[in-house]
Design a protein around this nucleic acid. Structure first.
Lengths: 117, 117
DNA sequence: AAGAATCTATCGGACGGCCAATATATTTAT
DNA sequence: ATAAATATATTGGCCGTCCGATAGATTCTT
């Protein structure tokens, strides 16, 4: 049966960052869906399911933030101009909202003090 | 009527961070609901509605991550031991998942290079 | 050619976040 | 005492995320 118990991160599940993360990844280089899923897995620890990643891609595509180009069996996506400016605004929001949380992390502070950018 | 059009951040709405942010705020000092709402407003730019903040508080409270103590007209919340360890784990996840995004922000890089912790 | 692997894609359901509206209680100001 | 301000709290509904299952198409391997 579909839609069983969703695994719950204790106390905070941090939903809502998927589209943001996809935009950011595509700002580095064009990728196709499975590549995006793998890059997200590297960061989150878990690979998003097809039912998660593809609807997100579709949404971004329909919103004109990314553009897909079919190449063989895969579809390579890249940021549009609109997607790029949206990402810029989102990054500004991200920083304003969560920078102090980041700077409170010990390993981040260490890296700061050493001036490693 | 209730539940009209939810304001949409274009392309990424970053839901799911509320409980995390509440835990982090309470790790700095105990606060009551409206104080939490104001601190979140300072960071996000918009104040979470009662229908957003109170259910989140309730959930964290029922999960044993925070503890409330009624004082006059307000209820002051503080982290529990469980909440503290949960926050620690969440911070680790947060860093792993989004650190590279954070470090890609120009103003953050500037601050890093100057070694300002 | 046949099978395995890879990629794209959709469906149904669950869940947290989020809002506007509404209600009540307590404290403060006039 | 009355009004205003402050704080807590719930209701009803929408949205994006997320999962597991399922399916079809293309490419690679044997």
């Amino acid at each position: 049966m579909a839609g069983k118990s969703v695994k719950k991160r204790p106390g905070c599940d941090m939903r809502g960052m998927l589209s943001f993360q996809i935009l950011w990844l595509l700002s580095n280089r064009p990728m196709y869906g499975q590549e995006l899923a793998r890059e997200i897995e590297r960061r989150r620890g878990e690979k998003p399911n097809p039912g998660t990643i593809y609807p997100a891609i579709k949404e971004l595509s329909e919103g004109g933030l990314i553009m897909g180009r079919t190449e063989g069996r895969s579809t390579v996506y890249r940021l549009t101009g609109k997607g790029s400016s949206t990402l810029k605004a989102s990054l500004a929001y991200f920083e304003r909202a969560y920078a102090d949380i980041f700077y409170s992390i010990p390993s981040v502070q260490r890296r700061m003090k050493e001036g490693r950018a």
